[in-house]
Amino acid sequence: MKKKKAESAWPDELHALLADAGVRQVAIVPDAGHARLIKLCEKDQTMRVVRLTSEQEGVALLAGAWLGGDKGVLLMQSSGVGNCINMLAMSIACQFPLLMLVTMRGDHGEFNPAQVPMGNATQAVLEAMGVLVKRADSVAELPEMASGALRLAFNTFRPVALLIGQRLLGAKDFRKLTKSVSE
């Protein structure tokens, strides 16, 4: 029980990190892995959560935010990385700071074959665009990795993606979900 409680606290630590850094605009396409962090940001009066129809909107939104003096963060799952690729050219060309917290699919223990190609390509395509990619695969290392990614993005004016591995998040078992939605 104690272990489970500690594991469930990482979204709270990420929220505290974002709040301390003065993040104002939180751009999201939801992912189960980000559900708690999204709720925490929605409750935070200092943050504006902006729901997107596609992740590339978030890259553009946060460029505008920085032009206006706001820090932001983009919360998304790895399948959305593919939607961002061309828009990231603006982040690179204009040296916009951009923090992307990417929960992985198609990773450790994946059930859904359709998630695998993009999940497997996520790091390579981000790096091909010039995005700095960091990765956390355990709860123990996540807050430190997130803090480092945030500082790297805003101190050095470049897009940085932190990939949050499925080993940390847990893979959804669709077979179980056919029996009960409460699991």
Partner: peptide, 22 residues
């Protein structure tokens, strides 16, 4: 002025981020 040289499909969203910040 912030003229875009690329980012096709992103102009309105750059405007939204700026409008929320200012």
């Amino acid at each position: 002025n912030f003229p875009l040289w690329g980012a096709m499909g992103g102009a309105a969203m750059v405007g939204l981020g700026l409008a929320l910040a200012q």
